[in-house]
Amino acid sequence: MDRMKILLVDDEHEFVTTLGERLELRNMNVSIAMDGESALGFIENDPPQVVVLDLMMPGLSGLKVLEKIKAMDPKIQVILLTGHGATKDGIRGMQLGAFDYLIKPIDIDELIIKLNEAAKKMG
């Protein structure tokens, strides 16, 4: 089976690199973007299967990025991550076609399950 191709988007460097490393350890192909623009550029060049997207970022917000990803390729699955409990954003994200949303801090096993489900949906 091909390694799952994942893009992590988060402005928190320490968080995103460590999470990336952990997912690599679990035999996943992980790329990292620190903001919305670079994430979109990355997706254009090399579309991943699943994007794990932080909602609160400087510059382009998570929801905007989500919209653009879906516009580029609706098959790419997006799992939203948030440190804030605002359910409104979560619901809005789901309406925009996000696969699911999780509140930080996340349990790695839970994330893996969601990623697998998302990848399966991506096909």
Partner: peptide, 24 residues
Amino acid sequence: AGVAHEINNPLAIINEKAGLIKDL
């Protein structure tokens, strides 16, 4: 809510770092 949000981010980092240590 503000405090929770502010704490959640570093907490997420601790979580990942510790998780990585556990993985390693």
